[in-house]
Design a protein around this nucleic acid. Structure first.
Length: 896
RNA sequence: GGGCGUAUAACUCAGCGGCUAGAGUGCAGUCCUCACACGACUGAAGUCACAAGUUCGAAUCUUGUUACGCCCACCA
């Protein structure tokens, strides 16, 4: 009885089946006290802003390959999934929706707004977790987290209070990047510079008590209304004498001082700079150094306030026009130049950000950064793969500035601080309102009234705690003890600053160690034109579309296979109209190839499992069996080495070659006749079953569903188990060398096939005989031992082995491989001319090769300096090539 | 202004001191062989961007040049 399987693999049937199976049976849910060395990792939480894109698919599939490998290697493996509340992103989405409905968050109120946000989150979360499952990731869903859930919120509050008590979180009036669209502060990292064609306006301010005047250049003339100083370089001979004097600021008619500051570039513009400390970061710093006044001109919505004199109430862009017009009319506009410069835009709001003076919460991270630097420099923690990203990380840590952690939004972790109404005293920072009042009463008497701070925390505050908050911290849970620190973090290089650095800093502060040992940095996914996929460009490819067409395993395999040097970008060819991708299609065909090879094996096993068949016994093995088993071990060893180095793509390619070239094209073909013969059937079954079993395990990290499907068919397990928890082949059990005779046989077969094609013999037609000539007796013995294989694979009826060339070469197709001459006698005359050309070309190539090698050997330096083994190698090679050339020459000679 | 990456077959990419520089796709030829036409076999296809250097030996290391791409930075 044989099993009948469809001739095409159907991923759409198999994949959801195994995904449910894995989750139901909790193969990926380790207990904290399970035996084994831990291997732990957390999923970089996707934003609940919508659905996943190709970048996610790549970023999550890569670690899944590692995680599945480690689990099979016997590690106690934990991979925790989760999602991120994405404060500003979700907030912006909801506000956009409200605007369409003709209202705003202020019209709706905080409570209703948050209801909307939670509803949005639920929907997006459902979509995302569905996609994560569809990708076949071996996540432990029983431990799923959300950055805004109760336990994670506890971690956030704990950290906030602690850092506040240490004085590392503080509140103050500082210049922040203000997004006038979402009316919140944003961090430096959330600002994108855009090149904009603007103007450089030169304005003249008269120096008081002098005939002189100073010309300043500016790209934002409207800010002159808030100027409180002029700065020049103290080394500048043009202006040195004016330091300490004052100019009269037009429009506002304010007297403002001229100060000397080395930050001023003498070569740029006029060499004199207007200083607006409340509206420019540089100016703010100059202002601090020289105790200049701060005048805020801006309202949160981007209009100018009462400090703007005649321009109060106007929008910032209108004020610019107004000021320029006034300057022109009054004659203090010296000139206007076209000027292309970078303008900071709010990443989320899409409008130019304004440096804005406001009350914000900050985190002083300098101490934490120092600690992270020390861990990196002294212990290589974390270790970056590839290494070069470590430098990027390091440079960033050195230049860190205080982190603005407050956002004037509603969706997020509300800051746990209560302000005392009507009193200018420090806020009370604590866990909840009741304890806030308790403390307030103690400090300020029974009548105080408190108001909770309106702001929420930057999203990255909670993400920064992710490696340990997901393990239950601040509680000292069993999970935390067993699985912290994490073994690996896999993420894109674009968030090394946003995220990786913040995790290492906060982890150092709160857990005393690096949150993870290794950081694996993956590249971007690019589209068919090589452009970065992004929502704004609309060139994203939905991974679901590719999975719908080709199956999950095909997509996974493609993504990983295309990743070569880790951190390199991945380009997916894609025909948008047809929704087709050659690369993914190739992987699908690989999957189908494996399916069919397995189908063949299963049909030939007489319904016996590998266990029932027993392992192949070394003493009964023939050459092909010894060869494929040795190649299996060799491949296993290579895969282990490569995977340990995170060379996931290279490992994928190595396995591909083994499965397709060695197993399918050579071993399975040779197994066919041996299965027909009673005496060799059993051992061949054993080898086929054994190799299939092991190659499936080798394959499992990349193609979990396909490998599981076949493995289950092969083993017919009586109880629920999974290939994903079977040992990964190490290749160390039988470290045999690959038999060289097999390679000789392959060469001869290839040459025969080549000659057949040359003589236009159809693939299925047998040729009556082939003559092999070799002067080497050992080689003849080796060839003799592979006679059957050559006959079968070459479709030859008879093989004549001899020491010397014989026969009429006008009636043969001839070729040479190594030192073996292969002659294929033909029924008719060969096209002598064509054969001569062909052989002549081979000979020319050989001769140039030979010349190269000869030249090398004639070089005394080479003999002296190159390693002896290389020299010996060259000699052997040369002898071989010369013999080959001689054979070819002889053939050619006999042709004419 | 600093820093990084990439340039190899028509296309997408491997190889990163010593194999006759490889794969997949595409192309050409022969075949629907009882696992697979999502397949088998065979073939054609390359000044390894350019230049100089180091080395016995360079696609591979160094320097420079060119082209493309990315990151960081307070020249108003």
């Amino acid at each position: 009885m044989t099993r009948t399987l469809p001739s095409q693999y159907d991923p759409f049937d198999a994949e959801p089946r195994w995904q449910r199976f894995w989750e139901e049976h909790r193969f990926y849910t380790p207990a904290a006290d399970d035996p084994g060395e831990p291997f732990s990792i957390v999923l970089p939480p996707p934003n609940v802003t919508g659905s996943l894109h190709m970048g996610h698919a790549l970023c999550f599939t890569l670690p899944d390959v590692v995680v599945r490998y480690k689990r099979m290697k016997g590690f106690k493996t934990l991979w925790i999934p989760g999602t991120d509340h994405a404060s500003i992103a979700v907030h912006t989405l909801i506000e956009k929706a409200l605007r369409k409905e003709g209202t705003s968050r202020f019209g709706l109120g905080r409570e209703k707004f948050l209801e909307r946000a939670w509803a949005w989150k639920d929907q997006s979360h459902g979509e995302i977790t569905g996609q994560l499952r569809r990708l076949g990731l071996s996540l432990d869903w029983t431990r799923e987290c959300f950055t805004l859930d109760e336990q994670r919120s506890r971690a956030v509050v704990t950290v906030f209070i602690d850092l506040f008590k240490k004085g590392l979180i503080y509140r103050g009036k500082y210049l922040v990047n203000w997004c006038t669209a979402s009316q919140t502060a944003v961090s430096d990292l959330e600002v994108d510079e855009k090149e904009v064609k603007g103007h450089l306006w030169h304005l003249r301010y008269p120096v008081i008590g002098s005939e002189e005047s100073l010309v300043v250049a500016t790209t934002r003339p409207e800010t002159m209304l808030g100027d409180t100083g002029i700065a020049v370089n103290p080394a500048d001979p043009r202006y040195r004498h004016l330091i300490g004097r004052e100019v009269l600021l037009p429009i506002m008619n304010r007297q403002i001082p001229i100060v000397g500051d080395p930050a001023v570039e003498m070569d740029f513009g006029s060499g004199a700079v207007k200083v607006t400390p409340a509206h420019d970061q540089n100016d703010f710093e100059i202002g601090e150094r020289h105790h200049l006044q701060l005048i805020n001109l801006l309202n949160p919505d981007g209009t100018y306030n009462e400090n703007a004199g005649p321009f109060a109430g106007q929008d910032r862009f209108d004020v610019r026009k107004g000021v320029v017009q006034l300057a022109e009319e009054a004659g203090w506009l010296v000139k206007t130049e076209d000027y292309t410069h970078n303008v900071p835009y709010s990443e989320r709001g899409g409008v130019p950000v304004e440096p804005y003076l406001s009350d914000q919460w900050f985190m002083n991270v300098s101490g934490m950064a120092e600690r992270a630097l020390k861990a990196f420099d002294e212990e290589q923690l974390p270790t970056f793969v590839p290494e070069r990203w470590g430098k990027v990380y390091r440079d960033w840590l050195i230049r860190l500035r205080p982190w603005c952690i407050s956002r004037q939004l509603w969706w997020g972790h509300r800051i746990p601080a209560w302000h005392v109404v009507g009193q200018s005293v420090p806020p009370i920072v604590t866990t909840d309102e009741i304890s806030a009042y308790a403390e307030a009463h103690k400090l300020y008497g029974p009548d105080v009234k408190l108001e909770r701070d309106e702001d929420v925390l930057d999203t990255w505050f909670s993400s920064g705690l992710w490696p340990f908050s997901t393990l239950g911290w601040p509680d000292q849970t069993e999970d935390f003890k067993a699985f912290y620190p994490n073994s690996l973090m896999s993420t894109g290089f674009d968030i090394i600053f946003f995220w990786v650095a913040r995790m290492t800093m906060l982890s150092g502060e709160f857990t005393g160690q690096s949150p993870f040992h290794t950081v694996y940095i993956n590249g971007l996914v690019r589209d068919e034109k090589g452009q970065k996929m992004s929502k704004s460009k609309g060139n994203g490819i939905d991974p679901i579309e590719l999975m719908d067409r080709y199956g999950t395993d095909a997509l996974r395999y493609t993504l990983v296979r295309e990743v070569t040097g880790a951190g390199q970008d991945v380009r997916i060819d894609y025909n948008r109209a047809k929704k087709e991708s050659n690369a993914v299609d190739a992987s699908k065909r690989f999957a189908n190839k494996i399916w069919n090879a397995s189908r063949f094996v299963l049909m030939k096993l007489d319904d016996l499992t590998p266990v029932q068949l027993g392992a192949p016994e070394p003493e009964h093995l023939d050459l092909p069996a010894r060869w494929i088993l040795a190649r299996l071990d060799e491949t296993s060893r290579e895969l282990n080495t490569l995977l340990d180095r995170y060379a996931l793509g290279e490992a994928a390619r190595t396995l591909y070659e083994f499965i397709w070239d060695d197993f399918c094209d050579w071993y399975v073909e040779l197994a066919k006749p041996r299965l027909e013969e009673a005496s060799t059937r059993r051992v061949t079954q054993q080898v086929l079953a054994y190799v299939l079993d092991h190659l499936l395990r080798l394959l499992h990290p990349w193609m979990p569903h396909l490998s599981e499907e076949i493995w289950q068919l092969l083993h017919q397990p009586q109880q629920a188990t999974s290939i994903s928890i079977q040992p990964y082949p190490s290749g160390e059990a039988t470290p045999q060398t690959v038999p060289a005779t097999f390679a000789l046989m392959q060469q001869v077969v290839r040459t025969i096939r080549n000659l057949r094609a040359f003589a236009q013999v159809p693939p299925l037609q047998s040729v009556p005989e082939v003559l092999l000539h070799s002067a080497n007796p050992e080689e003849r013995t080796a060839l003799e031992s592979t006679r059957d294989y050559i006959l079968y694979l070459g479709r030859v009826e008879a093989l004549h082995l001899s020491e010397q060339t014989e026969g009429d070469l006008k009636r043969v197709a001839a070729g040479v491989t190594g030192t073996v001459q292969v002659l294929l006698p033909l029924a008719g005359l060969v096209d002598v001319e064509e054969l001569s050309t062909k052989l002549g070309r081979s000979l020319d190539k050989l001769k140039s090769e030979t010349a190269t090698l000869q030249g090398r050997l004639e070089n005394a330096d080479y003999i002296q300096r190159a390693p002896a083994e290389k020299v010996a190698e060259t000699r052997t090679k040369l002898t071989e090539l010369e013999a080959q050339a001689a054979l070819l020459q002889e053939q050619l000679a006999r042709l004419v």
